[in-house]
Design a protein around this nucleic acid. Structure first.
Lengths: 215, 215
DNA sequence: TGTACATCAGTGAACGCGCGTTCACTGATGTAC
DNA sequence: TGTACATCAGTGAACGCGCGTTCACTGATGTAC
């Protein structure tokens, strides 16, 4: 066993890195957070990880493959956090959807680099089936939430189509995240309320109209 | 007067270009549409405009200045189109807001390159005051629309804050545009309805809840 | 437990390339008289 | 109308730089026996 603290140290003491793959992804996340995806080169990531420019090729085909993997893992964590926030619709569907919305913005706020890689990669992401699968899993939480909520609508009136409701909520979440959280692009706008408050109000107004209310 | 067709020809017959500034912006828009902002170099734009790599420096400080100018003009046209769609709230506020929403998506669809330069420039845009002004003008249409709509709300209930309503509509528009129109990123998702239908339904559900209905 | 060997994950030098940027220049245009 | 001149908007050659990518290599690790 090597001497090591809880996190792997940036400077190595041996020829082999040990977990270069993870180190490269962390370095890339740092660079993306600073300058956005597309704001760094493959060689720069290698340098940031303290390794020769040829080393990354042992782990990723090219720069895009690295970003795609970041996006894939991002979707995995994203799905997990939304799932946990959903909590099988407790305490009630409307409140659970609000919690999911907060989790959505929380992710965009806490992991802006991953979020950017997921939604503005700068090249087509669709090729990787695992990535597509992970993104489907994330959206699946919204779909599931919308379905349960629609099932619990007030008896009078037509049952709203759950897929549409899920898309509305997703678009609202993404719109607020992109416009008012985003990366350090400087394109954010000043507001009289927090993004979370804005989202919660929007979701509530929307769901009320569908005959969905807190129990 | 020179011989010329309605559009300036790509190959010049004289030493001076005549309208290189516009030609550079058009070339950049073409490249952005293909690969996104950040997907091209300053030299490449010059080449695409059929001009030496030093020529663009007569018109733009650097690549970012070119993109910023594209974004600025984009916001100008964007504001104009939203303004026209608003039509001073005719035939009634709710219908006018729906028309503004369609105009919003129409712009994102018709000018994806400009839209990308405006919302994903890849660097901070805020420095240019003219640009900020143009973007304020565009958002101003949404604010104005929300104000008039809120004024016409049903008498019972509290008057909803117009700025919040404007932000909700903007976020929904942007979210739908980014997720379901976007550029050729391949990150779009299949849907059972068009983005326009999705937006219209969302806006209608939202406004109904506020006590705003078509007359 | 020890040894031989295969495999793995790095190195570092090398390459050709395109980019950003500058410079002195030059052809075209506009204007004062 | 003609001429001289200033200004403008382009050229093209040149530079240093960092990138992407490859290659033969080498140090470390794991495993068969």
């Amino acid at each position: 066993m090597r001497f090591s603290t809880d996190t792997p140290r940036p400077t190595r003491d041996s020829y082999h890195h040990g977990n270069l793959r993870e180190a490269l992804m962390e370095a890339a996340l740092r660079l993306i957070a600073e300058r956005g995806p597309g704001g760094f080169s493959f060689a720069e990531v290698a340098r940031a990880a303290g390794v020769s420019p040829a080393a990354p090729y042992r782990h990723f085909r090219d720069r895009n493959a690295l970003i795609a993997e970041i996006a894939r893992l991002g979707y995995e964590r994203f799905a997990q956090e939304l799932e946990r926030a959903w909590a099988d619709g407790r305490p009630d569907p409307v409140r659970a959807i609000e919690t999911v919305g907060r989790a959505y913005l929380g992710f965009a706020r806490r992991e802006p680099a991953a979020y950017a890689a997921m939604f503005e990669p700068g090249f087509p992401l669709e090729e990787d089936p695992h990535l597509l699968q992970a993104s489907e899993r994330a959206f699946g939480v919204l779909r599931k939430a919308a379905e349960l909520a629609c099932d619990s609508h007030r008896s009078q009136g037509v049952r709203p189509p759950p897929l549409m409701v899920a898309l509305h909520i997703w678009a609202l979440c993404h719109g607020i995240a992109a416009l008012f959280i985003g990366r350090a692009d400087g394109n954010r706008r000043r507001m009289p309320m927090t993004p979370e408050e804005l989202l919660e109000a929007g979701v509530l107004i929307y769901l009320q109209s569908l005959g969905l209310v807190k129990v």
